[in-house]
Design a protein around this nucleic acid. Structure first.
Ligand code: ATP
Length: 759
DNA sequence: AACGAGCGGTTTTTT
DNA sequence: ACCGCTCGTT
């Protein structure tokens, strides 16, 4: 209690920081009033969390209990009460999107200018600190950020240089291990000491890890792990401590259960001077242990900060009791260290529903039918979300939704920025910002061909490595030393000159103009053929990239190329979510974290999918529990209705597989009887032998069955687009084949599999 | 340099 | 089933 309410204390004494001020009491009173209104709309426990501004605070509470609301209001309260200015607070969220929303909410709640407030992900915060003061810890101002793909490409080069076969020594695998090592703050030597892998294997990885670090440094690049590690180093540096440790007087972290060892250390260092740190989270929602997150961080918070106060919230404002009960039953199957009770404030509501389907198409059609029923009853498209364990399941849902004319937004699977042509353009841009970035150099130097063939590059890399120079630095400095080959030298010089010219544009031109010039002068687009439909898509993607650059320069605080590249590499799936767009949301369970929808569907509730196959082993108890938490997260996103579904058969890895229902369904008390009434065996026999095209529901989605089409009909196919029927074979038969002329080619398709719709 | 056959990995989740 | 990469061929 002594330290609980700083506001009361200040108001009573009319004193802050030990100094009396003439009109301070009056101003304090006004502030007090404003701050007080921020307690409206909070329950007593939430209020207590908000006014406990000083010292370490842990809010450990179940799903939908208002943790995020606490953080927002607490932040606003601190500012409104005038305990410090916006620039003295740092808040960390899980996605950039969540950061943006929090900032906006705080701005609305306080009416203050929040531009100097730091609300971001750990990674973005690290980048910001390193751009400002990275030189203190050996980070160049213009460092490049390597994403997973860049790291893997680097590892692959290292493996090849060693003369190893990348099919044996899988770069993926190595990159993964290196990344995990960094999550645990282990450098190559630490890692070698700690690893349980066989000596011979471990030493190979060690060797690659060391070389990887060396080349990252030479390229002036940081991967995701190093970003955080360097930030920690910076926060330990006396000057860094002064600049950031003292600046941030209040530290807040949302979703604390999914922080890793390095992020934990960042939090500890940021709070070291004053201990004003508030973390909120729910250990039952920890779903990122696979990438190095450590639930122990939240469970041991009181050990890290011995004077910590702990507040639990037990009222769930999101879901109805029926949904909450199912979710609680499910999570009750985990061994839990901190059991959390939750009561639904919204009353009993409906019981979760189960959909059983013959196959993935039937599943999607039933889900879409349910959505359509809700729409007819007045619900909006954006009130609906469909979640799945793996992105691969989105395909069929997309097809059926489009066929039904229901707009949807996909929290993207293969990120737009991961596409080859986009990565190429980005590589050119990265090279302009940081010419030492060998990864980018190698990626684009011969796209289109300009004299950097395999042989030439081999020689070049060897020569540069020998001198410990980046490729570009080598071309600049030592181009002359090399014997003869005047034609070759001329080509290299032309390349360097082209990049120099582009680089000179950086200072005077906007991002989109630079991108345009890069495309123009590098003649990158000449790689592609206007008549090839796949290439056409590439042109389209590049155009979209250009418009993303335009949007960026119009909206960003700091519209530099470096900032644009940062935004691109640190973007997350969830960042795409536009809650105001009236569209059904399709998302993985992971990207669903923190969101909420009136109607939630979880598809693919099958053994091997949810729980995922990797969690099924005898010794995979920890993984199984994480899968269960993942299902828990998904279920607790639902406000009004929750529908889970599974299919008896599903096409996976190109083969039709028989599936069995997820154990999580019975664990959650969601049973067979709730929908069909029959036993599983009866249902299965009912479905077997029916083709998707003849199943009920097909009519509704507009997918045409056999015997319907004739010559001249216009149809749409999910992949080939629209086309005209040229010929129908075995019309009406189950094996009917239609020949269709699409834009670029003629295809023969079996009607029952093609899922065509009329246009 | 440009093409195609053959292979291997993919569909775990992502900062 | 599908993609992208590699390697061999032209
Ligand atoms: N005191 C309250 N009164 C009414 N509604 C509330 C209250 N606190 C929170 N809510 C609402 O409850 C819902 C869940 O809140 P919030 O997202 O903050 O919970 P959370 O604990 O962060 O959830 P999760 O961990 O599941 O993501 C939101 O719609 C929020 O507006």
């Amino acid at each position: 209690m002594e330290r609980t309410n700083k506001l009361l204390f200040n108001a009573a004494s009319g004193c802050r920081n030990g100094k009396y001020e003439e009109d301070s009491i009056v101003r304090m009173a006004a502030r007090t009033e404003r701050a007080r209104t921020l307690l409206d709309g909070l329950n007593p426990e939430q209020r207590e969390a908000v006014i406990t501004t000083e010292g370490p605070l842990l809010v450990l509470a179940g799903a939908g209990s208002g943790k995020t609301r606490v953080i927002c209001h607490r932040l606003a309260y601190i500012l409104a009460a005038g305990f410090c200015g916006p620039r003295n607070v740092i808040a960390v969220t899980f996605t950039n999107k969540a950061a943006g929303e929090m900032k906006e909410r705080v701005s609305r709640l306080t009416g203050l200018d929040v531009r100097s407030l730091w609300v971001s992900t750990f990674h973005s915060a690290a980048v910001r600190m390193l751009r400002a003061a990275g030189n203190l810890v050996g980070v160049k101002r213009d460092f490049t950020i390597y994403d997973e793909g860049d790291s893997e490409a680097l590892v692959k080069r290292i493996i090849k240089d060693r003369g190893w076969d990348p099919r044996e020594e899988k770069p993926r695998h190595y990159a993964e291990l290196i990344s995990r090592a960094k999550d645990d703050a282990l450098d190559p030597d630490d890692w070698l000491e700690k690893t349980f892998l066989h000596r011979a294997v471990a030493e190979k990885i060690y060797e690659v890890y060391r070389e990887y670090e060396k080349r990252l440094a030479r390229a002036g690049a940081l991967d995701f792990g190093s970003l955080l590690l360097r930030a920690v180093k910076l926060l330990r540096h006396p000057e860094g401590k002064r600049r950031f440790g003292e600046r941030f007087q209040y530290v807040m972290v949302d979703e604390y259960q999914d922080t890793n060892a390095v992020q934990y250390e960042m939090v500890r260092l940021l709070a070291a001077a004053h201990g004003n740190v508030c973390v909120v989270g729910d250990d039952d929602q920890a779903i990122y242990e696979w990438r190095g997150a450590n639930r122990a961080n939240i469970l041991a918070f009181e050990k890290t900060f011995p004077k910590a106060k702990v507040i639990t919230l037990t009222r769930n404002y999101r879901s109805t009791q029926g949904i909450l009960d199912a979710a609680s039953h499910l999570i009750g199957n985990n061994t839990r260290l901190r059991e959390k009770k939750l009561r639904a404030e919204r009353g009993s509501g409906s019981v979760p529903r189960l959909i059983r389907a013959r196959n993935e198409y039937d599943e999607a059609e039933q889900v879409v039918r349910a959505i359509r029923t809700n729409l007819k009853a007045g619900a909006a498209k954006k009130d609906h979300a469909v979640f799945y364990r793996v992105h691969a399941l989105s395909r069929v849902l997309e097809e059926v939704l489009s066929a039904s004319g229901i707009e949807y937004q996909l929290l993207r699977g293969v990120s737009f920025y991961q596409r080859a042509e986009i990565k190429d353009v980005v590589a050119y841009l990265k090279l302009l910002v940081n010419p030492d970035d060998d990864g980018s150099f190698l990626r684009i130097c011969n796209k289109p061909a300009r004299g950097f063939g395999a042989k030439t590059l081999e020689r070049l890399v060897a020569a540069a490595t020998e001198r410990n120079l980046s490729l570009m630095a080598y071309l600049r400095k030592c181009g002359e030393d090399r014997e003869n080959r005047p034609a070759q030298r001329k080509k290299e010089a032309a390349f360097v000159e082209m990049l120099d010219e582009l680089q000179s544009l950086l200072k005077k031109e906007s991002v989109s103009i630079v991108v345009r010039e890069v495309l123009e002068r590098t003649r990158y687009l000449e790689l592609y053929d206007q008549n090839d439909p796949e290439d056409l898509q590439r042109f389209e993607n590049v155009r979209e990239f250009l418009s993303a650059a335009q949007d960026f320069e119009e909206s960003a605080d700091e519209p530099t190329l470096a900032a644009f590249l940062e935004r691109i590499t640190l973007a997350t799936d969830a960042d795409d979510y536009d809650p105001s767009a009236d569209r059904v949301v399709l998302s993985t369970l992971h990207a669903a974290k923190g969101l909420e929808f009136r109607h939630v569907f979880i598809v693919g509730c099958e053994e091997g999918l949810l729980p995922h196959g990797r969690a099924l082993g005898e010794e995979a108890d920890a993984e199984m529990e994480e899968e269960r938490r993942l299902a828990y997260v998904g279920m607790t996103r639902a406000k009004d209705t929750l529908t889970m579904s599974y299919a008896f058969e599903r096409r996976m890895y190109g083969q039709i597989q028989a599936r069995t229902r997820s154990r999580f369904l019975s664990e959650a008390g969601i049973d067979d009887t709730s929908d069909w009434g029959g036993t599983e065996r009866e249902t299965r026999s009912f479905f077997v032998g029916r083709t998707p095209a003849t199943l009920s529901g097909s009519r509704d989605t507009g997918i045409v069955g056999c015997g319907v089409l004739s010559e001249g009909d216009s149809v749409r196919h999910h992949r080939f687009g629209t086309g005209v029927v040229l010929y129908v074979a075995e019309s009406g038969d189950e094996n009917e084949v239609v020949q269709i002329r699409f834009k670029n080619k003629v295809k023969n398709l079996m009607t029952k599999f093609a899922h065509l719709t009329r246009v």
